[in-house]
Computed example of a mutant assay.
Amino acid sequence: MEEDDIYTKDGTVDYKGNPANKKKTGTWKACPYIIGNEGCERLAYYGMSTNLVLYFKHQLNQQSATATRNNQNWSGTCFITPLIGAFLADSYLGRYWTIACFSIIYIIGMTFLALSASVHGMKPRCYAKDNCDPTEAQSAMTFLALYLIALGTGGIKPCVSSYGADQFDDADEKEKKHKSSFFNWFYFSINIGALIAASVLVWIQTNISWGWGFGIPAIAMAIAVCFFFSGTRLYRNQIPAGSPITRLCQYFIIGCAEVFTFIGQLEFFYEQAPDAMRSFCSALSLTTVALGSYLSSLLVTIVSSVTAKDGKLGWIPDNLNHGHVDYFFWLLGALSVANFVVFLWIAKWYTYKTAVGTLSVHQK
């Protein structure tokens, strides 16, 4: 009986494929490596993406509407590719190998992007600070790097938080309680990475060079991978299983229910989703963000083409001071109000968890 208590009861295994030993794997022994990986990866992602529209405008010589549209299309792709990563993780590779393989693709993309902004002959030739003339090959390399990054992040976004949840055995009440603390620290690391990226790295890109501005995120991503591999011996791994076709149908039904009912409550979300399907359920929720990015790109295209007829500058010209970007912002404000109204209308179908404090009062 005591020997049975040594191993997890949720079917997880260690890096050798043996049943996971509670005393040697998982919980807070493994989580610091996952949290460190996520913090560095988010610093790399936001450090590279936050200022991307300006890079398109000033270095690739794109107009404002074109730069915005390209940025939104790329961002949408970053939230669509998790469907690929999640499917591979849950059906074939497992979360560990999916994160590992896609991280390598991520680093290759980050390296190409840093090289395209710093190496002579690969970076655009500039006559002044904001006056550059890139060749088609240079622009192509930039977008090749960006879409490699989009593919790489597709294997990480849906798996890392799920992989953290795998480190706690839901059949063990003591471990289950610690899962909430993991998610708190997980999101804290995301916000710290995003804060450094949006302040320090954006300043470097604007005031020092794009080479360093993209090079530092590439280094951060390399550190993230080192963090992840350092914890290999301590991780607990779910075994992928089941027919891909059958599971896809299950993913769609369960994933849609989870997205529309529990979106934004990831701790509860992971408790409800079956262990082997967590990554795909998470990826389905990310597709709503992807859809928003693609619709934003379409909105910019429509507004630019409609308002720029008959020789007019339109709402979003290359020089925003000469257009009516304020009209565009009013349009976005109106859409936000419409979104809030829809939220209130749909809220009547939501399910809610009773607050612990409230429940104890009623029980008394």
Score class of each variant (00 low, 15 high):
residue 86 A to N: 02
residue 113 L to K: 14
residue 253 I to Y: 01
residue 44 A to I: 02
residue 344 L to R: 15
residue 203 W to Y: 12
residue 326 D to H: 12
residue 221 M to H: 07
residue 127 Y to A: 08
residue 118 S to E: 06
residue 185 W to L: 10
residue 220 A to S: 15
residue 35 I to W: 05
residue 4 D to V: 04
residue 197 A to H: 10
residue 209 S to V: 05
residue 132 C to E: 06
residue 327 Y to V: 08
residue 238 Q to M: 07
residue 232 T to A: 13
residue 230 S to V: 01
residue 309 K to V: 14
residue 117 A to Q: 11
residue 136 E to V: 05
residue 220 A to G: 05
residue 159 C to Y: 03
residue 5 D to I: 07
residue 343 F to V: 13
residue 165 A to I: 04
residue 135 T to H: 09
residue 148 L to P: 01
residue 262 F to M: 14
residue 128 A to Q: 03
residue 287 T to P: 01
residue 337 V to K: 14
residue 27 T to C: 02
residue 140 A to P: 00
residue 351 T to Y: 15
residue 302 I to H: 07
residue 32 P to L: 11
residue 176 K to N: 14
residue 249 C to L: 13
residue 45 Y to G: 04
residue 124 P to I: 00
residue 53 V to F: 05
residue 320 L to P: 07
residue 160 V to Q: 01
residue 257 A to I: 13
residue 183 F to A: 04
residue 182 F to W: 04
residue 149 I to T: 01
residue 354 T to L: 15
residue 328 F to G: 06
residue 213 G to V: 09
residue 198 A to H: 02
residue 294 Y to C: 00
residue 22 K to W: 00
residue 248 L to H: 03
residue 187 Y to T: 02
residue 203 W to A: 12
residue 237 N to Q: 14
residue 347 A to L: 14
residue 204 I to R: 04
residue 79 F to W: 09
residue 192 I to F: 05
residue 299 L to S: 08
residue 108 I to W: 05
residue 273 A to S: 11
residue 340 F to H: 10
residue 227 F to A: 04
residue 281 C to R: 04
residue 248 L to W: 06
residue 133 D to E: 15
residue 24 K to F: 13
residue 212 W to A: 11
residue 197 A to K: 09
residue 315 W to L: 09
residue 106 Y to T: 02
residue 308 A to C: 12
residue 59 Q to T: 02
residue 13 V to W: 05
residue 264 G to M: 03
residue 335 L to G: 10
residue 329 F to S: 11
residue 11 G to N: 09
residue 194 A to G: 09
residue 284 L to G: 05
residue 295 L to H: 04
residue 334 A to S: 15
residue 78 C to G: 01
residue 250 Q to R: 03
residue 252 F to S: 02
residue 180 S to C: 03
residue 77 T to W: 10
residue 173 E to V: 13
residue 200 V to D: 00
